[in-house]
């Protein structure tokens, strides 16, 4: 038994130290060289415009196009499925590290209450995110922070930037037919009160840091939008409020081939939306 306990204890100690070493080396290399959006932000947090939200925000603003063609300094911090619990600490970081900038928030991410452990990857970069993961194993078992898609994307984007990460295909005919034949009512904003409270909270936070916030709703495929039971009520309410700046991008005349699927625009759609958000409304 003594032999076993000695071996077992040694295994635990060496495993712990090894995981710490692997984490520190991997994180140091990736923090320095990766071109993944959130890593780029934590390496260089100063920009003039920021985009926040889920995959709909990712596919709404073409960062590369804005930087190179429109000559507007913007970083798209959107990420697939980003929940409010992760968006808020990142927004806090943007606010703390910047003044007099514009922050664009895509509102469909504000109703996602799922806890996503992927952002534990940035615990060491962000004290705000660290608070979010307080009393989870991510705090003391560092290597767990790399067990997610964000880590894989950081490796993948070691040699190239993800500033052009946007769907580059068009919605298929089969999916268009499926959407047309689907008559179910879709509820996108199940808790409107919570959504409004979060919008107000974000507005106040940004104002407190002298930053401007613009809320927007990325467009849905038109036939899908018709099925959204609560869309009109929510968007009318937001448009009627004088204390917030809100744009419903569904009003833009986008052709059907600007969509990649029912929820996301593609490169062509994103270019039009980028023009509108970063050029037209600013002018």
């Amino acid at each position: 038994m003594k032999f076993f306990l000695k071996h077992f204890l040694l295994l635990l100690v060496v495993s712990y130290l090894s995981q710490l070493a692997v984490f520190m080396i991997s994180k140091a290399v990736l923090d320095r060289y990766s071109q993944f959006r959130l890593t780029r932000f934590y390496r260089n947090p100063k920009h003039s415009n920021f985009i926040l939200g889920n995959s709909r925000a990712v596919n709404s603003v073409n960062e590369k196009y804005a930087n190179e063609k429109l000559h507007v300094d913007v970083i798209n911090l959107g990420f697939n499925g980003m929940p409010y619990s992760s968006l808020k600490p990142i927004l806090d970081d943007v606010n703390k590290l910047n003044r007099n900038v514009t922050i664009y928030v895509e509102i469909s991410a504000l109703v996602n209450n799922v806890f996503d452990d992927s952002y534990a990857y940035y615990i060491s970069n962000s004290p705000e995110l660290k608070k979010e993961y307080k009393s989870t194993p991510f705090n003391w078992l560092q290597l767990l922070r790399l067990n997610n898609e964000i880590f894989l994307r950081n490796i993948y984007y070691l040699r190239k930037s993800d500033n052009d990460w946007i769907n580059n295909y068009s919605i298929s005919k089969a999916l268009i037919e499926q959407i047309k034949n689907d008559k179910r009512a879709i509820v996108t904003f199940p808790n409107e009160e919570e959504l409004m409270a979060r919008i107000v909270q974000i507005q106040r936070l940004c104002e407190a840091h002298q930053n401007k916030v613009i809320f927007f709703l990325a467009p849905y495929y038109p036939d899908y939008l018709k099925q959204m039971a609560d869309y009109k009520r929510v968007t009318d309410h937001l448009l009627s409020r004088k204390d917030i700046v809100y744009y419903d991008l569904n009003t833009l005349p986008l052709p059907p081939n600007s969509f990649a699927d029912r929820l996301h625009t593609n490169v062509s759609g994103a270019t039009a939306l980028t023009d509108f958000l970063l050029k037209t409304i600013k002018e």
């Binding site: 495993s15 090894s18 067990n147």
Partner: peptide, 21 residues
């Protein structure tokens, strides 16, 4: 086997467990 090689393999497997499980 109970030797240094087996021990190192165990450590590598545990690291993979934490990173990819």
């Amino acid at each position: 086997r109970i030797n240094a090689k087996a021990f190192i393999i165990n450590i590598i497997l545990i690291i993979h467990l934490l990173m990819f499980c």
